[in-house]
């Protein structure tokens, strides 16, 4: 265990959403976050908590069908993209769908990319700044957050500084 890894036990769905809320306040433009874990581990739940904490009151739909759900959040001055590559059979689908254009952007176009099932896009995806792995522990979950870059380490230290805040009531 070092400053690049944080492990957080999540008792229930509310705890997963609360972790999303903490992550929300630690984001920076250009950050790429991989969300890992099996079906039902809580990846989309975490994204919902994150978006709610940023003031998004609309729906947070699973991007499984559409591959990408983009969000323009008024409290952020950069776009946020929620990807889900669950349905990819071959990593080349990522390139064929033109999704590479969203990653590695700089300046005004740099958004935050939250990626579910990143392994399905294989080597086409740039390496993430932060990996959030959700493991199923009975009915609870255990989140392991690993910083993989300077940006990721900065995000993780901001996250550690955020007092666990509850997402605002809908």
């Amino acid at each position: 265990m070092n400053d690049s890894t944080v492990v957080i036990d999540l008792a229930d769905t509310a705890a997963t959403e609360a972790l999303g809320a903490r992550l929300a306040h630690a984001l920076a433009p250009g950050l790429c976050v991989f969300l890992e874990g099996d079906l039902g581990a809580g990846k989309t739940t975490l994204v919902r908590g994150l978006l709610r904490a940023l003031g998004h009151s609309g729906k947070v739909k699973s991007p499984t069908f559409t591959l990408l759900e983009p969000y323009a959040i008024s409290s952020l001055n950069f776009p946020l993209y929620h990807f889900d590559f669950y349905r990819f059979a071959h990593p080349d689908e990522f390139i064929d769908a033109g999704l590479d254009e969203y990653f590695g952007q700089t300046g005004e176009n740099a958004g935050v990319c939250l990626v579910e099932w990143p392994d399905k896009a294989g080597a086409h995806l740039p390496s993430p700044d932060l990996r959030v792995a959700l493991a199923v522990v009975g009915e609870a979950r255990r989140a392991q957050l690993v910083a993989c870059s300077e940006g990721g380490r900065a995000c993780l230290s901001r996250l550690s500084a955020v007092v666990a805040s509850r997402p605002p009531a809908a």
Partner: peptide
């Protein structure tokens, strides 16, 4: 798509 367990966008096109 049966072999892949779901619809594959590029194969679909």
């Amino acid at each position: 798509h049966q072999a892949y367990g779901g619809v594959v966008p590029e194969l679909a096109s």
